[in-house]
Amino acid sequence: MTKPRVGFLGTGWIGRHRMAAMAETGAIEVAAICDPSADCVAEARAVATEAAVVESLDAMLSLGLDGVVIATPSALHADQAITALSAGASVFCQKPLGRSAVEAQAVIDAARAADRLLGVDLSYRHTEAMRTIAGLVRDGTLGDVFAINLTFHNAYGPGKPWFFDAAQSGGGCVIDLGVHLVDLALWTLDFPPVSDVTAQLRAGGRPLAPGGVEDYAVAQFTAGTAIVRLACSWNLHAGRDAVIEAAFYGSRGGAALRNVDGSFYDFTAQHFAGTHATTLTTPPDAWGARSAAVWAEQLAASPAFDPAAARFARSAEVLDRIYGR
Rank of each mutant, 00 (worst) to 15 (best):
V47C: 02
P73L: 08
E55N: 07
A38V: 00
R45V: 03
V41E: 11
C40T: 10
P36S: 02
D35L: 11
L63S: 02
V41K: 03
V41N: 03
E43L: 13
S56G: 07
S74G: 10
L57H: 05
C40A: 14
R45D: 02
P73C: 09
T49P: 13
A31H: 13
P36G: 08
L65W: 10
V69D: 13
A44H: 09
V53S: 05
D35V: 12
A52G: 04
E55V: 01
A32Q: 11
A59Y: 01
S62E: 15
A44N: 05
I70Q: 02
A32R: 07
V69R: 06
R45Q: 15
P36C: 01
V53Q: 13
S74W: 13
I70W: 05
A42C: 10
L63Q: 10
A51I: 12
V54C: 04
A46D: 14
C34F: 09
G67D: 08
D35Q: 10
C40I: 00
A31R: 15
A31P: 07
L65A: 07
A48D: 09
S74N: 11
A71N: 14
A71S: 15
C40K: 05
V53K: 06
D39L: 01
S62C: 02
I70R: 08
V69Q: 15
E50A: 15
E55H: 07
L65T: 12
D39S: 02
A71R: 05
E50V: 03
V47M: 06
P73V: 10
I33Q: 07
L61D: 03
M60E: 08
A51Y: 05
I70G: 07
E43S: 12
A52D: 09
V47T: 13
V53G: 06
G67K: 10
A32I: 08
V54L: 10
D39M: 02
D35N: 12
V47S: 06
G67E: 11
A32M: 02
P36V: 04
S74P: 00
A32E: 06
A71V: 05
A48S: 09
T49A: 14
M60S: 04
S62D: 15
A46K: 14
V47W: 08
E55T: 01
D39Y: 03
A31E: 12
A46Y: 04
M60A: 01
S62P: 02
